[in-house]
Structures are given as structure tokens and as C-alpha cells.
Simulated assay, not measured.
Amino acid sequence: MKKIFYFLAPILGMLTLSAKAQVGMQARPNGAQYQIFTPNTGEKIKQNDVITFHYIQMTDKDSVLFSSYTAGHTVQAQIHPSQSVADLMDIFPLLTLNDSVKVKVPTDSIFKGHEEARPPFFAKGSNLIFIIKITKVQSLQQAMDERNAAIAKQKQQEGIDAANYIAANKLTPITTASGLKYIVTKPSALRKPLPGDTVLVNYAGSLTNGKIFDSSIEKVAKAAGLDQPGRPYEPISVVLGQGQVIPGWEEGLALLHEGSAAKFIIPSNLGYGEKGGGQVIPPYATLIFDLEIVKIKPTKHVPVAAKPGVKHPVKKGTAKKTGVSKKTN
């Protein structure tokens, strides 16, 4: 409760100090009510603008449901015609940069037609409360330019981090055409997997800073302090060519042999890209995997049919049915 108070205090203090500027809630045609506490001069927010803002969402009994202050980041939204009372799109055009506003949205309007979705803390006649602070207003082009610049910076940093990792560990990886880097750390003369084969793999995955984020090996997971309750520590099963794993794994596993081990250095475009992977893999992160193919379970592979007009050699004594010698794996 103290943490909630600390986050609310700056806003509530601001509301009290500026109450003289504008007293009472004003109604919108859709049933929402609003009160601007820090009216600022300047251009109002327009359709298609991209706004950045902090907000606190609560019940009308002051129970906090969400706070961007607690989450530690602002929220972005592009302004578009309102689709519902809860999207606040008819409120934002009333505001300008640095404005703060309190909005009451009637829950009866939100849950109209689907009362079964109404949570018990939103009784009939209650309101959903928003307290919003506008921190940035941009045109769509400005927002796109800013995003593209941020992406370029992240990609550049990814390359630097990967290069530093390779240099620090004195590695000399092989680089494929796609950008995958790999080092075979334990060679094997056994067969390679083919598309459709099931590959059993033990692995440990880490970031270029050395932080391990996942492992199928219990000793490694426990040493890294990973919280993986209920996970069976055993080789994972991957059917090659079925898109069950990231592209870097698909390509890399096909290069290895049963019983071999390798280190994969997988750039983000072959990994989790701009979105990252949950809370553990950030956007544009190069991933390091130390892995071993424990076993290959081959599937039945169908021979490739001969092309019309092309002759294929047939072993002496083999029945010539299709023009292609029968192969077994």
C-alpha cells in the first residue's frame, strides 16, 4: 500500500493544487466524465497523432488495477476514432502536451451485452477511473522516425555485443550465408539429421553478457538459478524442418551429426527478432547456445522422383520400375 501511495502522491498532490483551475467533472456524449487538472496552452492532440503517457487505472473505491509508474514505463497509442467508451479516444483530443486528466468510464457501458465478463469488484453503476499524464505528442511520421532510429541503434549495439563476445572468448566461428555462426566443439562421424527426423538435443542458452536464460540440463539450470518448476530435465525433441524451433536452430542442427556438440551464435534475425522472447530475451539479442545432438530418430524418407527425360544409374540386377535406384536410410 505504501508503494501505491508513493506513486499516487505526485499526481494526487497535483490534482489538489490545481483544483481551482477547473472544478467538477464534465460529461461526454458517450457517458464518460472527465476533469482536466493541468490545462496547458498549445496545440490539441489530433487524429493519427502518437501520444506517450503515464496512467493509473483504478476502481471508484481507489483500488489500483494498473499503474504505468509501477510498471516502470510509459504507454504509447495512436489516436483514432473512438470505438468504445473505454478506449478514451474522444478524451485525448481534448488534451495537449503535459496535460493531466481524470476520466470516469461507466462500467455499465463497458460490459453492456456481456455481463458475464463483469468482475465482482465492478458493481452495476460503478466506474473505471483513469488518471492520465500526457508526456509526449508526435505526428505519425515523427513517431516512425524515432522508432526507426531506435531500431537502428539496437541493431548496431547487437553487432557490437556479438563481436565483443567472440573476441573475449577468442572464438573463430564459421559463418553461414544467413549469418549464423557456429563452432563444432565435439565432432562425430555419425549421420546428419534430415528434414522430418526427430532430433534429441541437450542445450544451454545464454545472452552475450553470459546470463543463462534456459537449459535442459539440471546442473546448468540450478547453477544459473533458473526457476523452471515441473520441467523434466532431459533432451528436448525437435522434428527438423517443422518450424518447432527458431530459424537459427533449424539451420544449425542440420549442419551437425548425431553425437556432436557445438556452440551456436545466433543473430536476432534468426532468433526472436525485434519482439524478444518473454521477460528473459530482449529485443535484437544475439543468442548463444551450447548444445549436443544426443540422438537422431530417423523418419522414413521418400526417394526423390526422377525428372522426365533424365536417366539415373541403376545397380545391376535391380528391377527397373521407376528409373531410380531404391535407397534405404
Rank of each mutant, 00 (worst) to 15 (best):
E116W: 12
F66C: 09
K102G: 11
L190Y: 15
N148C: 11
D49W: 04
G273C: 11
I79N: 02
Y272M: 05
K321N: 10
A305L: 10
G241R: 13
M25D: 13
K192R: 15
I132H: 05
I236A: 03
S215W: 11
Q83L: 11
N40G: 08
Y6W: 04
L207K: 03
L12Q: 06
A9S: 10
V184D: 14
D87M: 05
I281V: 08
T176M: 14
K46G: 00
I160L: 14
K20A: 15
T176C: 06
V85G: 03
I183F: 13
A189Y: 11
N169I: 02
R28G: 03
D62K: 06
P235D: 10
P267I: 01
A305W: 03
I293S: 06
A71R: 10
W249S: 04
S206D: 02
F92P: 00
S188L: 05
D108I: 02
S206E: 05
P120R: 07
Q141W: 09
S109K: 15
K316C: 02
A221G: 08
I174E: 15
I36M: 14
G230F: 10
N329E: 15
I134D: 07
V324P: 03
T175M: 14
I129H: 01
M144E: 14
A143S: 15
G13C: 05
I4N: 11
K61G: 04
K136P: 00
K2T: 09
A163Q: 15
D227L: 01
F66D: 15
T135I: 02
R191D: 11
G42P: 11
G309I: 00
G42N: 08
P247G: 02
K2S: 11
A204Q: 09
Y165P: 01
G248S: 13
F53T: 04
T96S: 14
Q22N: 15
Q57L: 14
F213I: 15
K315G: 00
V50N: 05
H257P: 09
Q22T: 08
Q35G: 00
T322I: 10
I217C: 03
L253D: 02
G277M: 08
L88G: 07
Y55S: 10
I45P: 07
L255P: 07
I288G: 01
S206V: 05
Q26V: 09
Q279S: 13
I266G: 01
K327I: 08
P120H: 08
P267D: 04
H114N: 15
K102C: 12
L94K: 14
N98M: 09
M144F: 10
K211W: 00
D145V: 13
S18N: 14
V50C: 14
K46E: 05
A123N: 07
G210H: 00
S84M: 02
P235C: 09
V245K: 01
P106F: 03
V310A: 10
V75P: 05
Q78D: 08
S63P: 00
K61F: 10
A224I: 04
L207A: 08
Q57I: 15
N169T: 05
I183P: 00
S63G: 06
